[in-house]
Simulated scan of single mutants.
Amino acid sequence: MDEKELVTIEKAVFPYMNEPITCIGDSFTHGAAARPDISSYVSRMTKYLGTTPRNTGVGGATIAKGDDERGFIGDQIKDVEGQKVITIFGGTNDFAGNRPIGSVKDPADKVTTFCGALKYMITNLAKQNPSTKFLLITPAKSNHADWRLYDDGGNLRKNDLGNTFSDYVEAVKDVGKYFAIPVLDIFNEGNYNPYLFPNLSLEGLHPNAEGHERLAKTIAYKINSL
Rank of each mutant, 00 (worst) to 15 (best):
N98K: 01
N98H: 14
N98L: 12
R99W: 03
R99V: 10
R99C: 14
P100V: 04
I101K: 13
I101M: 05
I101Q: 15
S103Y: 04
S103D: 09
S103I: 06
S103N: 14
V104N: 10
V104K: 00
V104R: 06
V104S: 15
K105C: 13
D106P: 10
D106G: 10
P107A: 10
P107E: 02
P107R: 04
A108P: 10
D109G: 08
K110Q: 13
K110T: 04
K110Y: 11
K110S: 01
V111D: 12
V111A: 13
V111F: 14
T112Y: 13
T112G: 07
T113C: 03
T113N: 01
T113S: 07
T113Q: 05
F114P: 14
F114T: 12
C115F: 06
C115W: 00
C115H: 01
C115G: 08
G116A: 08
A117N: 03
L118T: 02
L118A: 05
L118I: 07
L118R: 02
Y120G: 06
Y120R: 04
Y120D: 00
M121F: 09
M121S: 08
M121L: 06
I122Y: 03
T123P: 03
T123G: 01
T123H: 08
T123N: 05
N124S: 12
N124P: 11
N124E: 01
N124H: 13
L125V: 03
K127C: 01
K127R: 12
